[in-house]
Structures are given as structure tokens and as C-alpha cells.
Design a protein around this nucleic acid. Structure first.
Lengths: 341, 341
DNA sequence: TAATCTGTTGCAAACGTTTGCCGAATGGAG
DNA sequence: CTCCATTCGGCAAACGTTTGCAACAGATTA
């Protein structure tokens, strides 16, 4: 059915090995022969069979990308960047969705292992042990999680979280809530730690509510609990939860930022589109995707297991405002000016 | 390095063909032998090599999914549903992004062809001819485009567009704008035709502005042109453009729906989160993804090339309101009640 | 008792490539 | 004219499976 290397060889009067070399080691074949082979190949519509090639070379030229939830707007920009970047290097990308389930996660890595040259693991929910185990079956790069000895690309969410809390403190809030993300999330632990430390250092209170699934519904559902704490400012694990919370507060006629300030994390596409515009911590997800691909593809050469950290930054918009400790005159903008380091 | 069928055979004292059959045709091997083989396989951590299997069976158990823009919020729910559904049937999914470029699109199909059992083509921008050409190289299912003779899953956007226009007419608008989508989009043509016909039948005016890239920026950029037409209601190719327009109007202090009504299409996740909440046409994208996968996997059996049409429906929210022809008393809700067929 | 059938297993070819090895042809140096 | 180096292309084995065919044993039938 399909046209193979053998057809091209026959049609151009050379041995199949010459055809093979024309494609995989052109410098080893006479320019004249080469162009003749190339011509007939083109004419016959020949395309190398990657499966066959993979069988003998051991390199598939495919990579896997495993994320918790494709529909979570945090991921698509990362997926897009990784795919485009990989393709530019002649790699194709399997994308798979674990639905936030660590078991599915592990199964997926194993199922994909034989079919790819490596796997990008985004925000994995597995245990460190499990991940280290899997790393022995297939090259891995972890995104958004730090595991010693494992190549990783992380966003320095701690930095962003500190900025966010300091921003709230400067605005005159001293009773804060952290709306926690899913169990098993490294990012969640980092934020929690950074936010907690920053609040404590300033003598402010920070209540942790959670864990929650990182979705709107969870943010909305947490509204009652948030109000019950009496806090005047909330930092959410991600924008989705922050937006859910915003909606729920709006439904209860609670003014944001008038009565409560809300900060998200991620800066997903539409956090600037809702009203009030969401103050949030911007993550360079596209850059992370590209960096992870590069890391994965270089991994074969030397066993160097770098860890790249990308900077995150607070973006002050309209969902945060003065708290109870602020002189009434101070505006958000004035206070915002002081937070810049 | 990796453990192969041969290792399992040696370790369990049988021929490799018996091991192979244990996995691919269990009924052909003695239950006793089978369990012994299974046990050693498990113990050795054997996993069949899909590339090798593909080489001889011709079936890769992979499918390709090609979309115009992963980061466009219309696609992720479709991708997610398709991937999950495919995996449940033991298929893995390559996802690729064409960046709205028909040339990249064609290249991708060819590059993926040898590596998959079929390809899902989402909202392709290629010409019909090109697609029919490619269909000869690899099984194809087209999503969001109707081409005679080709298996397809389409959303009946015409239906939704008619509903939307009728809704606007009923509200008392008689000067409408259609903010067109990208050149080469079947969906765009369908909407345009349906909206045009419906408006014309009612003696209303419908100006078409475009083509545009299906992104927010394009919607925002079109604001001036929209105002210049003097229209009081706008139907946009998709929610993204509608939202962009909404923002731009807001920036110019033009009230929505007070002065201009806006309708989107797609009902992406956040069209209900922005203010005013966007009136839009809901597309069953997840169902489309699943249907397309089913279609692709059944295609091998009989050459039956079905075409599935999924229903779309207008969702009335707050971005549409009474137009110049409406008695001041009529409220959106009242008018809305009349549009239901 | 012989013939036939059924169930289980081994044998070997095949899938489409890549690649180490070897021989042939060519060309320049001595 | 001989020798050596270099360039080029063919040969065949290998990658990890699947699968048609044949062999064999035991059971069933005539």
C-alpha cells in the first residue's frame, strides 16, 4: 500500500541502503545519486516510516506531555508553546490529561514510555518516590515541582506569593486567608509556605482553607468559609478559584475590593477581562513549556540535570484595595507604588 | 536495556510466539501457561513495544488531533474530551497546533500520517481539494466543516446563528453587524449565510465586517468600524471577538446592552464570568470531540462516511437588550420568552 | 483400531528501517 | 606503472513484534 524505501530504491536503481543514507546521512552519498534518489522519492511520495526507524535507532522523535487538566486555562498556553517548540525541533507531542488523578498519571507515564524519547510532567500529583521510580523507565522533566536530582522547570511562585502578601499587608490588611489548592501539589506547598512566612514576619494572621480542587466551583464553595474567618483579604491558589470566589462574593453583595480584597495566581487569559480585574501573580507558562522541551532534548547527551527557575511577578489590578488599617485617604494606586521593590 | 518479549520467553521457558499470543490472542494459549507468562512478564516489568507492533500490524493505536490554536479557549474542552475518550479505547493522541496556517496544517497531516491510524482535523483552513487529497494518505475526520464524501462532525451553527439574529430582531434591532471570522472557515460561511438570510427575511440590514482573526484583539480593533455602521446589535464569529468588542466599547463608555447589543458564539468557559454576561450560542464541543473519535475508529470497518450534526443553542444572558424599535416597557426577559420556538 | 479433530506450541518469515563491514572504483603521489 | 587513500555503494544483520504453517498430543468418532 504505502510507498517504502524499497520502492524508491527500485525506481532509482540503487540499493535500499543508499536510499536510507540519502535521508539519514546525506554526506555519505554522491550528490548526483542523492538528487536522483530525492527526485524519485518526491515523485513517489515517499515518507520515512518513523516506527521502523524508531525500532532500530531507539529514538522515536516523540515526546509526551502530561497535564492535570487540559481545560484548565493555565495549561493551554504551556501546551501550545511546548508543542510548537518541539515541532520546530522535529518532535511530535502526545498530550494526555490525568484529570488530577495521581494513579492515572503513573499509568500514563508507563503507557507512553516506550513510545517517546521523554516525558514532560506538568504539576504532577504523584509522590516524589513514584516519580523517581518512573524516571528509571523514561527520561522525565518535571514542570512546576522541585525534586532533588530530577531535571525540572519551576516557576518561582514563592516570590510571587511573597509579593502578593506584602501588597496586601501594605494595603492595611492584617487578617488574611490562603485558599489552598489540591493535595500533592508542590506549588501549593510553596505558596503556603511563602505566604505564611511573610504574614507571620509582619505579625499578621493567615488562615489556610483547603485543600481544594483548583477550579471555580471550589472557589465559589469556599466563600462561606472565607467570610466566617472574618478576614479582609484572600490569596487563592489560582485564578480560577479566585474568580469563583469573586462571583460568590458578588452574589452575596459583598464589595470587592471594598470589603474584601482578592488575589489570584497564574494570570490566565481572562483574569484581565472580568470585573473587577483580578490582581494576580503572572506565570511565564509559555517560557516554561519551551524550557522544559529544551531540557528534555538535551538530557540524552550528558546526564546534567539542571533545574530552571522562572520568575513570577505580581500584577496589581482592581480586586485589591485598602484594608482596615489604612488611612482612608490612601488609594490603591499609591499603596501599589510602595510595593515595588 | 529494555525488557523484551524474548526476555520473558526465556524466563518462563516458552517460545516468544507464545508470549506474544499471551498478550495479543490470549484464547490461543493454555490458561496455565498464560498465567505463568503473565507472572514473569509482570515481574520483569515487560511492556509491549508499540512501535514494533505497529510495524507488523499496520495499526499504531495512535491518533492525531490538529487544531488551529490550542490556546483558543474553544478548543481545550474538545481536546480534553477527545483525548480521554480515545484513551479509554486504548489510543494515544498527538496534539498539534497550526497557528491558523493552512500550510502548516497540510504539513502536519503528512508528517503525522505514518504515525497514526487517523487524524481529527478541527476547523481546517485548507481548501476542500487539499483535504480530499490528504484523505488518500490517511483516514480523516473533519470537525466543524462539511465536505461531501468526507466523514465529519459539525455543529449546526446555522441554527444557533438564526436563533441569535431572531433574538436581536425580536428585541427591536433592525441594523445589525456580523463580525466575520477567518478566511477559509466553513463555520464562518455558515454563520454568515444563516444570519444574512434571517435578517433579510425580516427586512433588516446586516453589514458584514471582516474577515478577522478569531481573537480578542480583532474584536477590539473592530469597534470603530462597528460604530461607524450605526448598527445597534452585533453578532460575532466567536466569544473571543465578542469579548474584545465588549472591552473596547466599555473603554469608549458605550453601554452594553444599553446602546449596543452583542452576541457571541461558542459559550467558552468565561463568557458567563465577564460583565455583562455574554449572550452566546452554546456549542457541544466535548460531545463533538467524542463523536469524532468514535467515527475515526469505526472508519476502518466499513467505508461508511457518516456526517454527524450536533445541535447548538442560543443562551440569553445580559449583553443583549431592547433596540430602537422596542416599546420602552419591554424587558429583555419578556422578549426572550418569545424567541423560544 | 484407525481416522479425524481440537487445543497448544514451536518455527520462521515478515514489517521498514539503520548501520558496520567490505569491495570496487577513482585519483594522486611516488 | 604501482601503491595507497578516499569515496561510494552493496550486503546482510538487527530492532521487537505478529502470524501462517506445521507438529504434536490427546480426545473423539466411526
Amino acid at each position: 500500500m504505502a510507498v517504502t524505501i524499497r520502492d524508491v530504491a527500485r525506481a532509482s536503481g540503487v540499493h535500499i541502503s543508499t536510499v536510507s543514507r540519502t535521508f539519514s546521512a546525506p554526506h555519505l552519498v554522491n550528490p548526483e545519486t542523492r538528487s536522483r534518489v530525492l527526485a524519485t522519492a518526491e515523485q513517489l511520495g515517499y515518507r520515512p516510516n518513523r516506527a521502523a526507524r524508531a525500532l532500530i535507532t531507539g529514538r522515536t522523535h516523540n515526546i509526551g506531555l502530561i497535564v492535570a487538566d487540559i481545560a484548565n486555562p493555565f495549561f493551554p498556553p504551556l501546551i501550545k508553546a511546548a508543542e510548537t517548540h518541539a515541532r520546530r525541533r522535529d518532535y511530535h507531542v502526545f498530550v494526555a490529561d490525568t484529570d488530577e488523578d495521581p494513579i492515572v498519571e503513573a499509568e500514563l507515564v508507563q503507557a507512553l514510555a516506550k513510545q517517546v524519547d521523554g516525558i514532560l510532567l506538568c504539576s504532577p500529583r504523584m509522590s516524589d518516590d513514584q516519580i523517581e521510580q518512573l524516571r528509571r523507565e523514561v527520561p522525565l522533566v518535571v514542570i512546576n515541582r522541585m525534586i532533588t536530582g530530577l531535571p525540572a522547570v519551576v516557576m518561582d511562585v514563592g516570590h510571587g506569593a511573597r509579593q502578593a502578601v506584602r501588597h496586601l499587608l501594605d494595603l492595611g490588611h492584617d487578617n488574611l486567608v490562603y485558599l489552598a489548592g489540591p493535595r500533592g501539589s508542590w506549588t501549593n506547598r510553596e505558596i503556603r509556605r511563602a505566604a505564611g512566612a511573610t504574614a507571620r514576619a509582619a505579625g499578621a494572621e493567615l488562615t489556610v482553607l483547603g485543600p481544594h480542587q483548583p477550579v471555580e466551583e471550589a472557589g465559589a464553595a469556599a466563600a462561606e468559609a472565607v467570610l466566617a474567618t472574618g478576614a479582609t483579604a484572600v490569596l487563592a491558589y489560582n485564578d480560577l478559584m479566585a474568580i469563583g470566589l469573586l462571583q460568590a462574593l458578588q452574589d452575596r453583595d459583598i464589595a470587592v475590593p471594598g470589603q474584601i480584597s482578592v488575589v489570584g495566581i497564574d494570570d490566565i487569559a481572562y483574569s484581565g477581562l472580568i470585573r473587577p480585574k483580578l490582581t494576580t501573580v503572572a506565570n511565564p507558562t509559555a517560557a516554561a513549556g519551551r524550557a522544559a522541551v529544551d531540557m528534555l532534548l538535551q538530557q540524552g547527551d550528558d546526564g546534567a540535570t539542571g533545574q530552571v527557575t522562572l520568575r513570577t511577578d505580581l500584577i496589581i489590578r482592581n480586586s485589591t484595595g485598602p484594608g482596615p488599617l489604612t488611612p482612608a485617604a490612601a488609594t490603591t494606586a499609591e499603596v501599589a507604588a510602595t510595593v515595588k521593590e
